[in-house]
Amino acid sequence: MSDYKYKRVLLKLSGEALMGSKEFGIDPGVPQKIADDIKAAHEAGVQIAVVVGGGNIFRGLSGAAAGMDRAQGDNMGMLATVINSLALQDTFEHNGMECRVMSAIEMHAISETYIRRRAIRHLEKGRITIFAAGTGNPYFTTDTAAALRACEIGAEVLMKATKVDGIYDMDPVSHPEAKKFDTISYMEVLNRDLHVMDATATALCHDNHMPIMVFNLDEKGIFDRALRGESVGTTVVDE
């Protein structure tokens, strides 16, 4: 494992990323690609935790916009993250990687209940650990759940895999002249309202000096390169 700079990390995946080319649900090719990307590091002993969103199935804010009670919508969104977590677990296990799903909402028949010390023990035993159901509370995003869990387990970095190759000063899709940052401070992210993660998640990482690394999920081998300490995407750090 000496080739890897980071020994314990948390990988944040959006639910939309699991759709691939589909308009809804899970493209089986995406979990397989993720498994391919992380397998070498996992086999080398890097401790990997995962948080995945549920936007490919249901998003609480969308439900609230349509007139649904926000808390009820968020509860549905948290259950969607459990579906995605089980799909990832199945793929990882089919690729020979031991994996546990730990849910912030108790559902003993299909997952373990999240307990911090047990989660750390799973990681120490070489099990990929997927944290499902967000924080277990409405009004908190899976970005905030990822920041919280990363701090709780003592991760060295929070890696957010997205559809863009880093953080820009404006939307690079609609503004070709947008400038990409190699590094940026938490406060600049908040002051510029750059939406790397929601403000609560960014502030939590800031308070606990948790670096955030943002990179393009689709770039082949990028997770392995990031773990080795190569400069990829954008890193959010202290001033």
Score class of each variant (00 low, 15 high):
2 S>L: 15
5 K>F: 06
9 V>Y: 02
9 V>N: 02
10 L>H: 03
12 K>C: 02
14 S>C: 05
15 G>H: 05
18 L>D: 00
22 K>I: 13
23 E>I: 08
27 D>E: 11
31 P>E: 00
34 I>M: 09
38 I>F: 01
44 A>R: 08
45 G>A: 04
46 V>K: 04
47 Q>M: 12
48 I>C: 07
49 A>T: 01
52 V>A: 12
54 G>R: 04
57 I>M: 15
57 I>P: 07
58 F>R: 06
62 S>K: 15
64 A>Q: 09
67 G>Q: 09
69 D>L: 04
71 A>V: 10
71 A>Q: 11
74 D>S: 04
76 M>H: 10
78 M>A: 01
84 N>M: 06
84 N>P: 05
89 Q>G: 13
93 E>M: 07
93 E>P: 10
95 N>Y: 13
97 M>H: 09
97 M>K: 09
97 M>V: 07
100 R>A: 12
102 M>R: 05
103 S>V: 06
105 I>L: 10
105 I>M: 10
105 I>N: 04
107 M>K: 14
112 E>R: 14
112 E>A: 13
112 E>I: 13
115 I>S: 07
115 I>M: 11
119 A>Y: 03
124 E>P: 10
126 G>A: 00
127 R>S: 15
132 A>Y: 01
133 A>F: 01
134 G>P: 02
135 T>P: 06
136 G>D: 00
138 P>V: 00
138 P>C: 01
140 F>S: 03
142 T>D: 08
143 D>W: 01
144 T>D: 03
145 A>N: 02
147 A>M: 03
149 R>F: 00
149 R>T: 02
156 E>K: 07
158 L>W: 03
159 M>H: 12
162 T>H: 10
164 V>C: 13
167 I>G: 05
168 Y>Q: 06
169 D>T: 07
170 M>V: 15
174 S>K: 14
175 H>K: 09
179 K>E: 14
180 K>L: 11
181 F>Q: 03
185 S>W: 02
194 L>F: 02
199 A>L: 12
208 N>F: 04
211 P>E: 05
215 F>L: 09
217 L>Y: 07
220 K>P: 14
226 A>E: 05
226 A>F: 11
228 R>G: 08
230 E>I: 08
231 S>E: 14
236 V>G: 02
